[in-house]
Design a protein around this nucleic acid. Structure first.
Lengths: 210, 210
DNA sequence: AAGTGTGAACAAGTTCACAGCC
DNA sequence: GGCTGTGAACTTGTTCACACTT
């Protein structure tokens, strides 16, 4: 697996992986690129090409072993280990993120939560984590690095938080803040913003009826 | 504004729009593609090209009027009207979505909430909306159509909910369910899934240190 | 017979570079 | 002088189509 892998390909792999784990849970042993494509609304050729960047995982005339392909993708994506995350911001949104049950089963653990609000600091969240002061974030990360930062603070405070995370050497940031963060090359950032998604759809809605 | 506009262009417009509303709030009157690009991590040429699909909004030698460009984008994206949404699923996630304060100021209103769970049906959510039975969804939509459906049910129930929405003639679906929905052409679907975002980043994290 | 893996053809999207205008 | 708008050049990504393997 040499060369430069296109970023779009990487972004599709998690959806392949998720479908494959479902198939595996349902006891499916073998699957073709045709079948995968139908379930994911992607052309079979796309799936074969994407996978071919990483190796030759299929068998001609048969398809892909679900077990084998799941394992390969898990390794490729780095999902064969657990990842440690800190959450900054425990307002409405941050609290919801902290209590979200979908991270842990996929290998993502929130190991620290932070806020600026002195009233929030010291309280327990989800019966496990005590909210710490964001002023301690830099020191805490120096003592005990984590892999990923989740930013759930208001737009105006997001860049400051991102700067602390970056200074601490974090490699990836998942931002729920409605603002584009500035980070140096080599730091991954993904943004989650339902409003942007809605606004992309209203463009089409307007045209549908007109 | 004739022609086919590339989908990627549409997807960038909301981020332009959001930055422009910020600039406007801060009293900035004029902005160049250079400045916009720096704030959004996009090349100036990209911004100019994107905007050029819709018209000639800038002035050579000066840049873009923030007011003018904001207004143009609002119209293009269809944000000069309010949009009605129903939310299906009031578990942990659905409840968080219902109480999210970011939709309303942007023109998106949740006008109905639904669940299958008989215990949830009839309860009030956010002191305003009464949770209705998902069995009534089809009839309710026939009586009183909405523009957008938000799906926040478990993976296994998502397709059934999507089918009801589609049958009711809905034009757009925002899905928080961890599964790819099947919809006919002409129905817009966007998926929000933080785990997929994280899994795309771990690929890079793995390589960073190796 | 069926379905992968892949070079080659094609399509889509981005950046360049500069004419034109303010 | 500065910055837009835009064809043309380029780069990136997708699909085709078929040789090859089981």
């Amino acid at each position: 697996m040499p060369l430069e892998i296109p970023e779009v390909v990487i972004d599709r792999l998690p959806t392949y992986y998720r479908l494959l784990t479902n198939l595996q849970a349902r006891g499916v042993a073998v699957v073709s690129s045709q079948e995968l494509g139908e379930a994911l609304n992607v052309t079979p050729a796309q799936i074969r090409k994407d996978l071919s960047y990483f190796g030759r995982f299929g068998k001609q005339g048969r398809g892909y072993s679900v077990q084998r392909l799941t394992d390969e993708l898990r390794t490729i994506l780095g999902l064969d280990q657990r990842w440690r995350m800190v959450l900054i911001g425990v307002g409405r949104l941050g609290t919801a993120i902290a209590s979200y049950r979908g991270f842990e089963p996929q290998g993502f653990d929130i190991v620290g939560v932070y806020d600026v609000n002195p009233e929030a600091v010291g309280t327990e969240l989800g019966g496990e984590l005590v909210v710490r002061n964001v002023a301690d974030l830099a020191r805490d990360l120096a003592d005990d690095p984590v892999d990923i930062g989740i930013v759930a603070v208001p737009a105006g405070e997001a860049q400051a938080v991102v700067d602390v995370l970056v200074a601490a050497g974090i490699g990836a940031i998942l931002s729920y803040a409605p603002t584009a963060a500035q980070v140096p090359a080599g730091v991954e950032v993904r943004q989650i913003d339902p409003v942007l998604s809605l606004q992309g759809m209203t463009y089409h809605l307007r045209r549908r009826d007109a």
